[in-house]
Simulated assay, not measured.
Amino acid sequence: MSFSSKTPPSQSKGSALLPWYGALVLLAALFLACYGFFVRTKLGQWIDEAALLGGEAFLAADKTRGPALAFLDHMPAASALLAGGFILFALVRRRDFLRPTVAGALLLGAAGTTQLLKHVVLVRPDLNISGASMNSFPSGHTTFAAAAMAAIFIVAPVAHRPPVALLGWSYAAVAGASTLVLGWHRPSDVIAAYLVVAWWSVLAGLFLRHAHGSGPGPRTTAAGSRSVPERLLRALAVLGAVAAAAALGLALSMDHPAIGSVQNGALLVFLAVGLALVLGTAMVTGWFVHELFARYGAPIRRRLVRGMK
């Protein structure tokens, strides 16, 4: 079975863009669902807090905390330099002005959206679960790491996008997991950051689709001829989806006593639940964004199509 994003003659331009608009609605709905359950309900806050306490109880020793802290301290600067280098290369070497501009807007837009949501729009009600009532949803560190990788994905040549997506979202997964085990963020904060970056990535892809017009997309090969990074990304997404679903089911089925009375064994389980949710969501989100670009992305052109709407 082959995949091609070439628009059939009978298909309108509007219907060709439906997958992009549908993805934007889906990601926004998932973000609201994540906020509604993990932040606005007592059970959601309990699961979130238990995972955070698990990290503090088992992974806060100096041997674990030192390298992780060093990674997080340098992560924003390293991510910015890496993304800036790729954007500058595309701008100067390939004389491609459109995609670097879109990539930069993606990075700034995702980071700005997270700060606006966290500090202005969203609130965390005090449900007597956590002593920290300040809203930390979404995670700023995770947003910046994932958005930097998404910016590189935008400017990368089509042939290089599968390994870029695989490595970039793996990096974002490690960044998000680090914020959890260090006690900086709850699992839902990290998941929300991934959804914010994915939403801006889809918006960037939709803009490029409008700018470049219709035409054959990047995927023209059979499913069985996918590259190794593509197959690995898909396998990790399937594994991540199964792990996240199983972890959430386990968390819902376990006892939820007063948060201060949870035993170490249960805290370890909830830490594993949090890590499964974080890592699983990162890989599923990375695969989803890559597939959308691979199936429905526009051909890369350096000049805009006249009559762009």
Rank of each mutant, 00 (worst) to 15 (best):
A146P: 07
G183L: 05
A151F: 03
A83E: 05
A146N: 12
F86P: 02
A150H: 00
V120L: 14
A177C: 08
A156T: 02
A80W: 03
T143G: 01
M75I: 14
A68S: 12
A105K: 04
V164E: 01
Q115C: 12
L122G: 03
L117M: 14
T114P: 05
K118N: 04
W184S: 14
A77K: 11
A175I: 07
G66P: 08
I152V: 09
V121S: 02
R94L: 00
G183C: 06
I87L: 11
I152D: 00
L182S: 12
I87W: 03
S139P: 01
A165W: 02
R94V: 00
D126C: 11
R95S: 05
I152S: 03
A177F: 09
F86V: 04
A177Q: 07
A103M: 01
H119I: 07
N135T: 06
W184R: 14
A175C: 13
G112H: 14
H141D: 10
R65C: 12
A145T: 12
L122Y: 15
L98V: 13
S170P: 08
S136G: 12
T113A: 15
A175S: 15
P67W: 06
F71S: 09
G183T: 04
N135S: 08
L81F: 04
G109L: 02
I154F: 02
T142S: 12
V92A: 11
A145R: 10
V181K: 07
G131D: 11
A132Q: 11
V174Q: 03
A80R: 09
A159R: 10
I154Y: 04
Q115V: 15
G66N: 14
F97C: 07
L166A: 14
S79L: 11
D73K: 10
A146G: 13
D73E: 13
A90W: 00
L166I: 08
D126H: 14
G176K: 04
